[in-house]
Design a protein around this nucleic acid. Structure first.
Lengths: 130, 130
DNA sequence: ATATATATGTGTAAGTTACATATAGGGAGG
DNA sequence: CCTCCCTATATGTAACTTACACATATATAT
């Protein structure tokens, strides 16, 4: 069941958002962004994350902040407030060794998931072709 | 957060079930099975669906029945009770034209989703390699 | 009789997403 | 000064999907 938000609704192309709630892979995407950026704050990660979004709806900013909190609780990232700069204060996150290893787990899982999905796509086209 | 069910928990390999609730793509998988089988009943579809499962947990049988009901409500499949054969009575489902077209939508969506996911995997490996 | 396989479902807690909303600092323009 | 917009963090909530357990019933094999 579609909701409202999407960049494709106005156009006539098939849209990832028309098919219900797909999994957006927010956790691995956040971890990848952190690995690339080194120490970073939530807003920055959210911006970077859009490039890796797997659906047309992009990555939800709220989900990014919630994910960072969850990762912090589990020790996959460390964090501290940055108070020196001007502007709104922000929380700086850094990937821990444990977090890097967790991303390694994700890498293996995503690889297999992708291969299985590729098979589904093949079967899908075959089924439609008949 | 992992739960209990899985074929990999005992082994020491990374497991799709360790990463929380991934999307299982039950709807397109059910549609593909129906397209391949022609008219079929839920149990049969559930069995066939296991071959296309994208995670180590397989496809939940309960989810298959719920999905078939949902597809029926939306006119993507038609159904009727089969009473003639011996054994427990069963509901026979058939893909409608509308359902076949819906599977076509899924095909395009899955294709794009898969390509985006492939990019995430690439970035993941690159981030870990540094 | 008991167990197992076939067959169709429901119940429920937990996880994830979509989208709206709240709060606050700082800069640009009227 | 007021308003608008951008940066920045965060919460609220309904809808959706999954994991797993459980209920029900028929037929067959032991």
């Amino acid at each position: 069941m579609p909701r409202r938000k999407c960049c494709r609704r106005q156009q006539n192309k098939p849209c990832t958002c028309e098919m219900g709630n797909l999994y957006r892979f927010v956790e691995p995407i956040v971890l990848i962004c952190l690995a690339r950026l080194g120490t970073a704050h939530g807003y920055q990660i959210a911006q970077e994350a859009q490039q890796l979004a797997v659906t047309h709806a992009g990555v939800d900013v709220g989900a990014v902040y919630r994910t960072l909190r969850k990762l912090d609780e589990r020790g996959f990232v460390s964090s501290e407030w940055e108070t020196e700069n001007s502007g709104p204060s922000r929380r700086l996150y850094t990937l821990t060794d444990s977090g890097r290893s967790h991303l390694g787990q994700w890498s293996a899982v995503l690889q297999e998931f992708m291969e299985s999905l590729a098979e589904v796509v093949t079967h899908c086209e075959k089924a439609l072709g008949q």
